[in-house]
Design a binder for these strands. Structure first.
Lengths: 341, 341
DNA sequence: GGTTGTCAGTTAACCGGTTAACAATTTCAA
DNA sequence: TTGAAATTGTTAACCGGTTAACTGACAACC
């Protein structure tokens, strides 16, 4: 069946295509109430749906937002299995849809980078999540494309950033353990990058220790990748070789679950023998056994904020390069931290 | 900076835009090797990237695939937090990207349905996942759009379907419990719809019971929604009111985790007091404590197959309306089923 | 009365590709 | 030698919108 075009509508309404276009785009003062009515009538009768490709071609606005998340090592799949990313995507999509935008989800392929997609699809903007390759950002700077970063350490004000106070988060988690009487506190974490979010949590961890008069022991820091498997490994290590460790702060819930598994496998119970606190408050945190105590960072809400921020940047409502927006954190006490008092 | 167009390329290469277009689209025998070389050279030098909007407008192919997944009750967010969906999306995206397509992820809004998106964006096809509204499918039939359904019970051959043998899956899970000496076996499940996947698993459950000479007890079937919360409720109920139940088959891993929590809260241990088997083998299944025994259905792989199937339908390689493709299932034995022997 | 301004609407070029129809040249068979 | 067919390339219309520039009609002002 033939597509209904703006010309069909204009004929039916007895006006020009320009008039229809003006009605469609709500152009003030270009068209009389009478005409508006006729056009709307015709649109309804013909069940007219505008073609975004044509629109995009004509005015260079695609109503399409790129959302970039990390991929698996082998570049074959998006890391969407990881609830951290999927929950962000949920929040982002909700806000975009509400504003009449669609989302194109993708990763960054090595080599061609992201510019291809961005150019091919005429993206109106992009939200970047969890990508830490300098070169990628250098590339992005060359394009004039509104961009919002989430949790990125590129704080040179070239892009909008929606972040959290990671230092405070690390502090909060560690202090909670200390308040419960723990003194041998391990940190299990992903790679500590200069100025990265994890480094900040690490700093918060050290601040809490110091504040409590505890000695910082570098041996108690287990640094690797942010995966369940690595957490498991670290948990096993702790169980076997560090009897003085009674509590673990994992900088991500996935890792925390891994730590719990590792401890369990080595015959230690959580929180009976060792307490564990996570970070993120993913939806799986409340499903673990026992349910995981963690630091909530309202992921979906932040995703939604990022989208909002991007939309404002797109229609110029927003400041050019504001300070990073930091959303509040809160401790969620569940069942993996035992009081030693 | 001005966009590089096909005209820029044609000038640089000293040929017509048609020639460039033919090179771009690999048109056989329309262009000499010499010209191909010149054009490719020009493309490289100018760093030309074609505009998909223009392309879509001209030949009515958008290289865009719609992926539809369920939303939360209040229609505000996609159900992407649920790993079941996000793992499917991963598999789908991987295959699509590989074939040069992009994905537009969305839900079905009540009212306007999906046609708006489909028409606006000139989608080349769609993959539908976990949507059970009759009206939605009726609407889809009206559009001539290649479509692949995943796990849908609309088996009237209007659409391609990628499914699993749910009856067999239900049988597999239940038999595993029986083989381990269980006789009081509960079924905790989402809503049992006529001809739906869950009904089939239910049928498999009954078949296994019958085969083993066990009595089917309708009181042992707990039917509600597919959520952690409901599983928790059912788990509590089982612990308090059904002492003769020693094993639970939950038709989804999320529910299984909920059941475990409910049992734990009521003071029962898994698998010490009650055994639990799930379904899906989500990535979180191996992270639970103890790790969840379940039925694997290779979700990401199936997503990838669905995408493959759709791509074939799009370029006419595939059969018109083949029988549903069923992918194999397998039992994954972990730590939540105890042998009573 | 003539000039200017405002309002409502139209015309037609343009966005960046694709492709049917045609043209020029070469190849080859009769 | 002539005509047909194949090869390679170009021209220009078209996809479905947007929008700058223009037109007419009418009102307001000096």
């Amino acid at each position: 069946m033939k597509r209904v075009t703006i010309r069909d509508v204009s004929e039916r309404a007895g006006v020009s295509t320009a008039a229809v276009s003006y009605v469609l785009n709500g152009r003030e003062g270009k068209v009389s109430p009478d005409t508006i009515k006729k056009v709307q009538q015709a649109i309804k009768e013909l069940n007219y749906i505008p073609d975004f490709s044509a629109r995009s071609l004509a005015n260079n606005k695609s109503k399409l937002i790129g959302v970039v998340i990390p991929q698996t090592e082998d570049q074959s799949q998006l890391l969407l299995q990881n609830p951290f990313y999927s929950e962000f995507v949920c929040g982002i999509e909700a806000k975009l849809r509400q504003a009449g935008y669609h989302m194109i989800l993708s990763g960054v392929d090595k080599g061609d980078g992201y510019l291809d997609t961005s150019m091919q699809r005429n993206l109106d903007g992009a939200i970047i999540l969890g990508i830490y390759q300098e070169s990628f950002y250098e590339e992005l700077k060359k394009v004039e494309l509104p961009i919002v970063l989430i949790d990125s350490y590129i704080h040179d004000r070239s892009f909008n950033v929606i972040g959290i106070d990671d230092e405070e988060g690390g502090y909060l988690a560690t202090r909670h353990l200390i308040e419960n009487g723990h003194t041998g506190i391990a940190l299990v974490t992903g790679m500590i990058r200069k100025d990265g979010v994890i480094e900040k949590r690490f700093l918060g961890y050290k601040r809490a220790l110091k504040e409590a008069g505890l000695f910082y022991n570098a041996d108690h820091v287990f640094e690797s990748s942010v995966t369940f498997e690595y957490g498991e490994e670290a948990g096993g290590l702790i169980a076997r070789q560090f009897p003085d460790i009674t509590a673990v702060f994992a900088t991500s819930d996935m890792v925390a679950l891994g730590v719990m598994r590792g401890l369990n496998e080595a015959g230690r119970s959580v929180p009976g023998d060792v307490s564990v606190i996570g970070f993120d408050d993913l939806s799986i945190a409340r499903m673990s056994n026992p349910p995981l105590t963690t630091v909530n960072q309202r992921i979906a809400e932040r995703g939604s904020m990022a989208a909002q921020c991007l939309l404002e940047a797109i229609d110029g409502t927003a400041e050019a390069s504001p300070a990073p927006i930091l959303t509040p954190l809160s401790l969620v006490v569940r069942g993996t931290v035992r009081s030693l008092r």
